[in-house]
Design a protein around this nucleic acid. Structure first.
Lengths: 343, 343
DNA sequence: TTGAAAGCGCTAACAA
DNA sequence: TTGTTAGCGCTTTCAA
């Protein structure tokens, strides 16, 4: 028995009684050098009968394209990431483009390797949420052969289009909300300082406090990662320093969750003694105890817009290179309450 | 200025003054036909100076391999999935193999297309958590060219190795736990019936109730998806039917969360009036209100073991084809409490 | 409108 | 040990 090799274009051509080149043309419509309809039909039938599927590897080698877009994310276990990816996939899939995902585990080298891998496989576009704001591999993407778009996290050099939530406005609203509730001593527990999101939110926090004449001195702590464990640890450091505060603005919802845990462990009630505001409105933020007040970013839409930018680039449209900051919204839930006088 | 084309093996060979084939051999150590060390060094230096990176597409076309494993998941926004993926990645990355992820959005056609895509790109192995237990595309993987392993979700034909948690044992422990608390009327809100996990857990639920002489008649409802919204909707149907029950075993934690919401909306206290047990111990299950009692599955390890199976296959080792069911553990938290007499 | 020929970048037989 | 040759499966000039 002959090996059940998968049929190639030559097989199809032979069966249709034409040259492989003709078969190729018949199967790839449009393009100059159309094929006579009867011939084309013979080819299509032959392909159908043989169950022919074009070989994307061979095609890629020849055409330097691939029909897929690469998506590079820092950490799938961060709950904000999946909805963003979903937004990307929905748009791309709708445009007939597959997307292949890679997770860098927040590691620059890992990130560089995966970007290289995707590029080498001729991905036609790249959407990246970078592992760090100093990623060289990401910066090199600028002016490269394929369009690249950043989501949520920017690099310092910001050489690429970015789609993100308007974090600054969100943080400003969060601080204003706390101030309105009477909080005058607000702490900030951030994410890792090598991420643009952390720096943006931190700057916005300080600006808002400045504007409202609130003292922040000694009330800022940096978490080592965007995880609950890191948030908890940072909050414990904050508590240990005994800097008085009645509210915490957290770098993101996972950090906020960690703060919730640290406070609970220390016997401090939220929102009774201390109020907390998160950021992102991750899935289940509304189901925590207490339900988390947070700055919602439009997760799916961030992904969708990034995908659209890539599609525009592929169509040859120019892409504005200033950051696209989508509206954020403060969602008030149970983790914030009026400050207790003199506490 | 000449186009800054990325250097090819021929460029390297020319610079080293050798034949491309020799350069290829020098760069790919081992293999029959070793290269003299001085020559090899010249080639390596040339490659280094030129910044040569082998083209995986060309290499794949020639060798029919690719150096990556494909991972197909049904829904990244289901919180159990990312930790499993993490387990897979850690093992594969440790073995020097990249992994490319694809999300099927729980859709069979989408799944078939992505599997085809990954296969066509010569992925060397496939790890799949299938969209449905009747997926033809998945069944066809059996005996295919690349090793394939299923995680968490099986197909009815189970033609492939499976790595999953021992759900049956877990559900049995969960029901026993509820029974010990005095619950005699236990309802079951499941996931979608086209998933093997749903069927396994349902069968285990019925077996356990049977064993303990608990009536289940009229107390089973199927959720349309493994989401909180579906769980809530199914629980509302259960409540509307007014079948009396004092506890719910949920198909997974998201379903359990939905039940929590439905009960809260109906003014029924958990665990005061009704106890709930989830399944999976997803991230943040311990932070819900109340903290969820649940059957923990070893998420990362499921992924890791699946990846190891693929690696074994690639090394040519035989792989046992009976399902690998890893131990589950009932984690008792705040959502279960003693049944109220006569309620 | 179709065919012939070349070649994408690499590796595997075979020869030298 | 190294070079020569061929070809993976496809597309794209160029010629007929």
């Amino acid at each position: 028995v002959a090996a059940p090799r998968r049929p190639t274009l030559s097989d199809v051509a032979r069966r249709a009684g034409v040259n492989p080149a003709t078969a190729s043309r018949a199967l790839n419509p449009a393009l100059p050098g159309r094929v006579a309809e009867p011939t084309a039909k013979r080819v299509r039938d032959a392909a159908e009968e043989l169950g022919y599927r074009p070989d994307p590897v061979a095609r890629s080698l020849r055409t330097r394209r691939s029909g897929f877009v690469g998506v590079v994310v820092p950490d799938l276990t961060n709950p904000v990431i999946p909805p963003i990816v979903r937004g990307i996939e929905a748009v791309l899939w709708g445009a007939g483009i597959a997307c292949l995902l890679a997770d860098t585990d927040n590691d620059v080298d890992h990130e560089a390797a995966l970007i290289e891998e995707l590029l080498a496989r001729r991905c036609e576009g790249l959407i990246v949420s970078t592992a760090t704001r100093s990623s060289e591999a990401v910066n090199r993407l600028a002016g490269g052969e394929v369009p690249a778009v950043l989501v949520t996290r920017d690099t310092d050099a910001h050489p690429l289009p970015l789609v993100a939530g308007d974090d600054a406005a969100g943080v400003d609203a969060a601080v204003a909300h706390l101030a309105e509730l009477g909080h005058e001593r607000i702490a900030h527990v951030t994410g890792p300082t090598d991420l643009s999101t952390t720096m943006t939110r931190l700057a916005a926090f300080e600006a808002a406090c400045e504007r409202l004449s609130l003292e922040t001195q000694g009330r800022i702590r940096h978490g080592e990662a965007f995880t609950a464990a890191a948030g908890r640890e940072a909050c414990e450091r904050l508590l240990a320093a005994d800097s008085e505060f009645t509210a915490i603005a957290a770098g993101n919802d996972l950090i906020a969750l960690g703060c919730l845990q640290a406070l609970a462990a220390a016997g401090i009630a939220c929102p009774g003694d201390v109020s907390i505001v998160g950021h992102n409105d991750m899935p289940m933020a509304d189901s925590l105890q207490p339900p988390l007040t947070t700055v919602a970013i439009p997760q799916r839409e961030i992904g969708a817009r990034a995908a659209e930018l890539v599609l525009s680039s592929l169509r040859g449209d120019g892409v504005a290179d200033e950051p696209l900051l989508l509206p954020t919204e403060l969602i008030v839930r149970g983790s914030t309450a009026p400050a207790i006088r003199g506490s």
